[in-house]
Structures are given as C-alpha cells and as structure tokens.
Design a protein around this nucleic acid. Sequence first.
DNA 1: TAGTGGTCTAGACCACGAA
DNA 2: TCGTGGTCTAGACCACTAA
Lengths: 225, 225
Amino acid sequence: MVVREHVRELIQGASPGTPAPSERELVSQFGVARMTVRQALDALVVEGLLERMPGRGTFVARPRRRTCRLSGFTEDMRRRGLVAESQTILARNEKAGPGVARALEISTGDSVVHWKRLRRAGGLVICLEDVYLNEVLLPGFLARGLPTSLYDALADRGLRPTWAEDTIQADAAAEDEAELLEVEPLCPVLRLSRRAMSEDRAVQVSRSTFRSDRFTMYVQLGDAD
Amino acid sequence: MVVREHVRELIQGASPGTPAPSERELVSQFGVARMTVRQALDALVVEGLLERMPGRGTFVARPRRRTCRLSGFTEDMRRRGLVAESQTILARNEKAGPGVARALEISTGDSVVHWKRLRRAGGLVICLEDVYLNEVLLPGFLARGLPTSLYDALADRGLRPTWAEDTIQADAAAEDEAELLEVEPLCPVLRLSRRAMSEDRAVQVSRSTFRSDRFTMYVQLGDAD
DNA sequence: TAGTGGTCTAGACCACGAA
DNA sequence: TCGTGGTCTAGACCACTAA
C-alpha cells in the first residue's frame, strides 16, 4: 500500500509519458520484494494512471477519455452554470401500468411514485418531466418531502443511477405541453425517455419533453471497453 | 497463460455466482506456484469475468452492464435489422474552416474531406449527413472510392472511432433539407452533431439531420468507471 | 550489453467467512 | 476451526529495447 501511494503522489500532476521509477529502483528504495512493487504498480495501471512498456519502462499514462457521469436535470443544468428549479404538477403513488412495470422490472399494479414537474433553469422553462420511481425500493418516498434533485435524493438512499438507456426523438409539441412549455403548439420539442438502473435494480423511468430552443443534449459515447 | 485459459473455459457459460476453483486447488492441479495462479485469476477479474470475495472464494461475476459500442449510421441501422443505403450528394476535398478545424484539432486551411450523403434504410429516407474527415490522417481517402460504411472504412485504416461527443437538438426542417428528406418545411427534425476520436486523434466531425418520424436515437449511458 | 518489464517459484503470515 | 483470498519474501530466467 505504501509503495502504491508513494508512486501515486510522485506521478500526480506529471505529464503523460513521464517515466515512473523502475521496479527494481523501488525495490531497493523500499527494501521490499519485487512482486510487491509489481502489485503496487499493477493497481495503478488498472486505475489508468500508469502504462507499462516492456523493455522500456513504466510511464505516466495519458488520462483515459471518459464518458461523462450519468446525471439528471439538476446536475445537467449545474454543469451549464445554471440553477435548476422545478414546479411540481403532480406527485402521488400509483399502481404501475404494464409499460412502467416492465421498464421498472416489477409487476403490473405494484406501487410506483409518479412525479410530474415543470422544470426551469435560469428562470426559463426548459422541460416537462414525468418520472416514475420504483416505490418498492423507495418506501415512503413522497412522505419525506419532495427533493429538488431527484438523483441526489436517490443517492441519499444508496440508489443513485449508474447506468441508463435513453431514447431520444424530435417531435411537435402537443397542445397541453405547449401551454406549459410556453410555446406554440406544433413547435419542435425534444423527447427523452430514460430507464435508469442503480447496480442491477431498475429505479427510475421518465419521459421528458424539452423546448428545442432552450435545450441541447450533450452525450459522450464509447471508450467503455 | 495456460491456467488463465483453462479457468476461462471452465467458467464460460456458467451463471453468475458459480464458484470458481480455489487458488490452492489450481496450484495443486497445475503444479504451479500460487502467485502464478493469482496472476491468472487477476487477469480474469480485470476482464470482469470473475469476482473475488475475501474469505469466501472466487466466483463468476455477473456481466457488467455496458454502454453500447460507438457506431455510425450503417451499423446503427443494421442493429435495427435494416440495410443502410446512401446517395452521395457531394464528396470533395476542401480547406477546413475555423469550426471544422477546431473540432478536428487541425489548422484552418488544412485539407479535409467533405462528404454529404442522403441516407436511407429499408428504402426510406432517414437522414441527411454532412461529414468532415481529417484528411491528414486519411491521405487519398476519396481516391480509393467511396465506401458504404464510413466507420468500416476508418476501421480498415486503423482509425475506427472509439469515443465521440454528440450534441443533439430538435429543430424545424429548413426548406432545402425538407425537400431532400421528403417532408414539409418546418417539420420537426433531430439534429445530431458528432465529433469522433480514434484514440487521441480527432478523425471525424459530422452534422446529421434526421426525419423525426423515422428515427429514434438510442443511447446507453454510464457504468464507465 | 545493460536495464526494463513479464513470468515464475516455494514458501510464509494475515484477516475474514462459514460452520 | 478450516478454507478462502490478500499480501509478502528473495530469489530466478526470459524477451525486449536502447545505446
């Protein structure tokens, strides 16, 4: 452990390609067996901090490109430097219909939280969001009061989504949506359906409708191998 | 290596949670040192095939949820069971403008391939795509004839994109787009801008405009840590 | 040729989980 | 208590890279 942390501090902030101390160098420096040093370095290699080059040495790796962390509306807006607000239109327990039940991997009729919000950022209406939560995993969710950030609230219960599948479509605003979103009917909107999982449990499914003039979705893909 | 492959075959197809042979069991079975066995198992753990549980044993891991592989139009349609076709509208070398140059991390005026296509699947018009390729990385790209699948062509040159950032927006179709896409002007369309990298090299940047009635985008997010 | 990482040996003691 | 994985020792030989 001590070797690993020593090397971690050594290379922290070093630019990619900088050589790390060689294994034998660390052996004599710490008076430790080579296998021990190797395991320490292996851990850093797995973390993506070091790269081994057989015959040449061990070097600081270039940081791996990441696919950005799964986030909800609040965090998404915060990343854009905006403060998210929301106006609850509906919040109640319901019996899951067949579609929601399948998405949440529960049975039709099981209890779900249905929460509908109009979401603003920087004071401007951005989207209309219908979210269904797996109430089995979140007993008494509504009783504890409505949070601002759903994902924060889920995180508090150890259920922050770590994986999601989204389907995204352009469409024309329906009349009721248009009124809430303060646009003309038939204006283009972006529809986003999400099914979010925390570990292996389906936690949340949602449908959001975004004003196209105020929202651009951004995703990073790949490099997950 | 032989231990690793032996265990890999043993557990292949086994359901998650199945115990793998213990380390000491493999030691006596192969007449090999325990460190050797551990390294073999470590490799499989990193691959996500095994999980260690200290004090309990080593078990077949549940397959990690993946974010789907980065793909282009051809592959995307193939996943939906459709054959992608394309009609080239324009294909030539150009000097990069400032926007494209920045996205491709080259200098303004550097040579880029500009390729504009109308893309169909199952015989139906789906989208209009403008792609710019980093010609510095792809000398003589156009001279070799136009491929059907851009990503396959890039893969042949060892430049298959492994990471991309996409921005997605809903919009109303412009007149010229509407005509090519065979819809009415102002119909909702989905706009997708992509900047795609192969390792650390910016290879491709594109803008696509999809008919909203014929295309739903699907993405999987997260679990990349 | 000297130095590097890759692989391997034949032991050892520890903390932890299950019975 | 017994078996498990986690960590460690003090060496060894190999293939590869660079000078």
